[in-house]
């Protein structure tokens, strides 16, 4: 699986298949702080990611102190 991460932008290669929630646990990412997008489509935590999937882990936390 090709994994795209942001802030900073970087890519990882990980072996699949894997469930989304397991991927986030492995990356030590809080599931409340990201969306997971597979080939342009949003997926839920129980979705199974294929070995050849391109997966974007998009952070959703933003904002200054204003």
């Amino acid at each position: 699986m090709k994994i795209l991460l942001r802030n900073p932008r970087r890519e990882l290669d990980l072996p699949g298949p894997m469930v989304v929630s397991a991927l986030l646990a492995r990356l030590e990412i809080n599931r409340e702080s990201v969306l997971v997008i597979v080939d342009g489509t949003l997926v839920t935590g129980d979705a199974r990611l294929a070995d050849d999937a391109t997966v974007e882990v998009r952070p959703v936390i933003s904002g200054g102190a204003a």
Partner: peptide, 29 residues
């Protein structure tokens, strides 16, 4: 916040995903 990001993805609204470079490490985050 997660719902708003999902709304934009589903509605095809392009937005700036990267965090403001000035906000890094601020207390609010």
């Amino acid at each position: 916040e997660r719902e708003m990001a999902a709304y934009c993805v589903l509605q095809g609204i392009d937005y700036i995903v990267e965090e403001c470079p000035m906000a890094e490490g601020n207390r609010h985050l």
